[in-house]
Design a protein around this nucleic acid. Sequence first.
DNA 1: CGATGGGTTAACCGCTTGGTTACACCATAT
DNA 2: ATATGGTGTAACCAAGCGGTTAACCCATCG
Lengths: 218, 218
Amino acid sequence: MSAAEPSSTEQEIFEAALVAFAQHGRTGARMQQIADAAGINKSMLHYYFRTKADLYEAVFAHTMERFMASFDHEALHEANTFAELLRRFIDGYVAFCQSHTHAMRLLVSENLRGGPLLGQHLQQMADAGTDTPPRLFRDAIETAIETGEIRPVDPDHTLLTIIASCIFPFVARPTVERMHPPAGSDWAAFVEMRKEQIFDVVYHGLQPDSVSSSSSPA
Amino acid sequence: MSAAEPSSTEQEIFEAALVAFAQHGRTGARMQQIADAAGINKSMLHYYFRTKADLYEAVFAHTMERFMASFDHEALHEANTFAELLRRFIDGYVAFCQSHTHAMRLLVSENLRGGPLLGQHLQQMADAGTDTPPRLFRDAIETAIETGEIRPVDPDHTLLTIIASCIFPFVARPTVERMHPPAGSDWAAFVEMRKEQIFDVVYHGLQPDSVSSSSSPA
DNA sequence: CGATGGGTTAACCGCTTGGTTACACCATAT
DNA sequence: ATATGGTGTAACCAAGCGGTTAACCCATCG
């Protein structure tokens, strides 16, 4: 089922389309502008992807796959303590947002639209029996609660809080850069800082109440 | 300074345009569709707001004002303890997101575009000497750190985490509803739950380490 | 009464848009 | 050399777009 390695131009189109759709949305993006960004003739867009809708769906589907895969990378399975798992989850997730910023923005854009494609993809994934990706980490929260490693909290909400904290800065980057000067001057450093700060607050926020804590994270 | 009370139809246009721009972005929204949603003739759009760009800027400016004002409501000033302030800030902010969901989405959409208008507005606000709105709460975090009421954390990152946790569910609502069933069946209840859960994690996350509190400067 | 002027409408205009067509290029296979 | 088929381009087209026009309605007022 794996797609054959796409041609160079097809790849260029993909990248250009991703950026355009992420910035201006499905209807707002212009085929001509995508063609220009890809350095090709407009007709080539229709040669590789028949219509604008097809192109959007192709880009979206690919984005969705990468997004899903991002939740289940090897590093997570190697974690021993929950603290370590949390650390790796946040680090990995923020890193993913950084290296796939446009992809994340496309997903947000689709959400703003009402997310019809989103529901479609999640549905067919559910039908295929594939579990919702963050399940691994979500379950880890539940077990950590059972073992008393962390406070009893709502796993879903906690997960949502973490994901929101990781994604949001990349989605609202212009605002963040304006309101938080350090982010504007050195984004990469800000992102690294962010990983630690999210972990810091969430980790402490999950510590059992009165009882002491175990070891400090790696 | 205060604008005169707009006519009924002008209000209708505003609402319709807000929704359309939030959903499809500045370029994606269609004037005809806005007119239809407002229940008026397309020409009226150009009668009240000369061009599409004008309409967008008007809606955006108004949204921006409401957004800024949301950070400084009375309830915040009445808080005695930091915990109380935090509680009120989160409650108020989530409530605002709920009652002005489309406004929040418009801001996100503008951010996805690169946020030129955003920078413009923030800039002219800075020129006017008005402080960046969340400053009040941000400063409260700093003082709470100094008094040892909470752990020494980066105020900006903490604020960002809180804001992200509040806003994100409304921006990515379709995804959230799919991945977290309770949200899909009863959104209002989910939102109330969310207020508490955000406070819960953040508040515990800011608690001083079990041992005493030594005031360490930032 | 008729004139004024804000609110409203249908019809229209020119440009932009997504999409198509016909044709040119150029490797490779016959 | 010459078909062939994937790759690329310029020119074109109909529909959709933002925006304009001219007339209409109707309250207010001289």
